[in-house]
Design a binder for these strands. Structure first.
Lengths: 267, 267
DNA sequence: ACATCTATGAGGTCAGACCATTAATCTGAG
DNA sequence: CTCAGATTAATGGTCTGACCTCATAGATGT
């Protein structure tokens, strides 16, 4: 209870210590002086290079031992920092020697977003209802924008996912993954990478709960067929450039799925 | 995976890599067998406890040494895993002994989201234009939903941020932070935590570029005044429950800011 | 020229030590 | 008996130095 609260950061100005009796107005106000741990300092050092543009995607980092000695810290601290950056999808490490060996600035934001959302959904920091509401708003926007910008290539992507889901006798997992791919493809059709990464992350963060909830459905095949019918309608609306209709259909589609899987929102 | 002969057969997972060559149809398809590193196994072990609900917010983890011996790995690997989970806002560690000492499941998704976005914006994986477009869509939704759900308490939050920005002679940083707080408060008024965390993360990821761009503006005070006027209009629309108007004003507001800061989109 | 073998350098892992901090516990004076 | 102070123990934080695996570059041999 009461944890997080402000979260969102920003503040940094509000006096955290309430100092109820403000009679002592001109008190020195000793702030507890936060002492950043060593690995955080290493992260900051690397982050600074990234922020200033000195390091960009594809660039190599110094070897761990070298970095450690340059920064005057132990290799263990450097490694902890690198693991953090790796989990954030910012670097990639491989062993060996010569070409391709070492640590490099990378670009894998999607996995990082997925992991964050998945864990915090599991921890119930975000309720499934909230996530679904976000998904509705996000994908409504995607559908509308995609309708205005869709290309031949993007349409082909949509059709490929639809074809998989049209295959008879398909397994639940395969259907669900193709379903995800379909919605991600719509987001990708907007040309906005953040849209598609967020869409994928939200969808993947619900993968396990969705599959679990699906097993409680009476007639899974019928539900899949119904959803697939809506998929086709959405595809048609996007292909026709009818953004308003695509957005509306997308919202109805997501609500259909959510209501057909009551076990989901019970979480 | 990968066997069977499902027509079309594209994986539908990666989405980023197009996996062009499907010409080699019947090739054995040796997948390089990924060998998870030790710290990843530790993460999985902990994540499994979280997914299954065995560990929830507030629960303590075993001490590092104990966890290491239980899992049969070194303490260094455990620590690397813990640092990753910490960066994802999933755990919190403090030293000492007794009450409050040790490692606990925590709930700080906002900071993690901010960090991911900030780094990937700096790496230009997400362009500022994309981020702003996402912000428009997200905050349009927030404004509309907030208009339908706003409470006295939420309105007070909005007014508090407005009051700070109305203070004459305020510094750029303070104005910007209050601005962020205002928009986050709108998102919070929807009651959807994911909305407000995403809003804060997007906004904070642009903090540095925004402040930098602001310094190129001819008359910062005039711009702040113009934005503040729009803030008041948005607040009024939300208070009046006029969702459509609030959404429209919000979109115009963000576009006003973006166009007044040309240095932003140049990035 | 080609195919091997070896050296090198990178990350991955480990064991053990020491430090800093903090709560719980013990101890002794009042 | 009570309470202040010293002691202790548990925990995260850091460092050192070693060893392993792996993949390439370069030397070596045919």
């Amino acid at each position: 209870m009461s944890e997080n609260a402000d979260s969102t950061g920003t503040a940094a100005h509000a006096a955290r210590t309430s100092t109820a009796a403000d009679s002592a107005a001109a008190r020195p106000e000793w702030t507890p002086v936060s002492r950043p741990s060593t690995h955080e300092l290493v992260i900051e050092a690397i982050e600074e290079q990234i922020m200033s543009g000195t390091l960009t995607v594809g660039d190599p980092l110094p070897a761990e031992r070298e970095l450690a000695s340059k920064l005057g810290v132990s290799r263990a601290s450097v490694r902890e920092a690198l693991r953090v950056l790796e989990s954030l999808g910012v670097i990639r490490s491989s062993g060996g020697s010569g070409r391709g060996a070492g640590t490099f600035i990378a670009s894998l934001p999607s996995e990082a977003l997925t992991r964050v959302l998945r864990l915090h959904v599991a921890l119930a920091n975000f309720s499934v209802g909230e996530v679904i509401e976000s998904r509705v708003q996000l994908e409504r926007s995607s559908a509308a924008l995609a309708s205005a910008r869709v290309t031949e290539d993007a349409l082909a992507q949509l059709n490929a996912s639809l074809a998989i889901m049209d295959t008879p006798g398909i397994s639940l997992e395969v259907f669900n993954d193709a379903d995800t791919a379909f919605h991600v493809a719509i987001a990708q059709a907007t040309g906005n990478q953040l849209f598609s990464d967020l869409t994928g992350a939200i969808r993947n963060s619900l993968r396990r709960p969705i599959l679990a909830a699906f097993r409680d459905v009476d007639d899974p095949a019928a539900l899949m067929a119904a959803l697939q019918k809506q998929h086709h309608a959405i595809r048609d609306a996007i292909a026709a450039g009818d953004g308003a209709r695509a957005a509306q259909l997308t919202e109805e589609h997501i609500h259909t799925a959510a209501e057909a899987l009551p076990a989901l929102t019970d979480l």
